[in-house]
Computed example of a mutant assay.
Amino acid sequence: MKNYLVLIPARAGSQRLPGKNMRQLGDKPLLGHSITYALKNGLSDIVITSNDAAVLDFAAQNEVQVIKRPDALAGNEEPVVTALKHAVDHLQKKYNAVILLQPTNPLRPKGLLKEAIAVFEREDCDSLMTVSRNEHKLGTISNHQFIPYNYKMGQRSQDLEPLYYENGLLYIFKTALLNQRKLLGEKNYPLIVDHPFAEIDIDTEADFKKAELYLNHFK
């Protein structure tokens, strides 16, 4: 088994849902669900990277290691990879691979992480990402006309060519990729997740309310 580091990025300054990382979802803040998920899967090397005072305080209270993220690496346009590299560079211990758990995806199928790690090691991947099938009939609009993209008008939904979307539930990647400012490598494995939790990615109040409904229904 590889030497894994769990990284949880939780910057301040969400515009659409202020303070979302510390928003209470069920019995714990949004951030706490990712911490608990890692611990329940037997992973104890957990690091939070954040510039949010409330997050830093929460991490200290729960004895989770934290790397204070410079504000320059926490802007709306800043890619998360720079914050992850900053965190890894400031750790004394070295890791073969990183597991990225985003607080905005707080609900994850119970056995998903162990399955993902097993696939990552078996396939000797550079990286692994979780995806889910999109079964919508998609199209574009041009000059007020709808133009089908992934189907022909009249085609049955069950006959659509399978398309998948990046659901953000988790990522695993070799730590060395951070030196290239990358999370996904040339040998990237798409792990298909068929579970309602894949629909939850919290950016707005409506997303949060949906997460509450799913948490109460599926617990």
Results as ranks from 00 to 15, higher is better:
P196F: 08
P70T: 03
R181A: 04
P148C: 10
R133N: 06
E63F: 13
A38Q: 00
D201E: 13
V55R: 04
K40C: 10
F208R: 04
L17F: 12
L56V: 10
P29Y: 06
V66N: 06
L178H: 00
V47D: 06
P79E: 03
Y4S: 02
R11C: 06
L170M: 13
V193C: 09
K137I: 01
I117V: 13
A211H: 08
V6D: 00
I200F: 06
I48A: 06
T175N: 00
A116C: 09
A97E: 01
N134H: 09
L25F: 10
L30R: 01
G139Y: 14
D52L: 08
Q155N: 06
E199S: 13
L107R: 08
N179S: 00
L30S: 02
Y149L: 14
N216S: 14
E199G: 07
V193P: 02
I48H: 03
P196E: 10
L169Y: 05
K210P: 04
F173E: 00
V66A: 15
S132F: 05
L30V: 03
L39C: 05
V81F: 01
K85H: 09
D126Y: 04
D203G: 10
Q92N: 11
N62E: 09
A83V: 01
P196A: 07
S34A: 15
L177T: 00
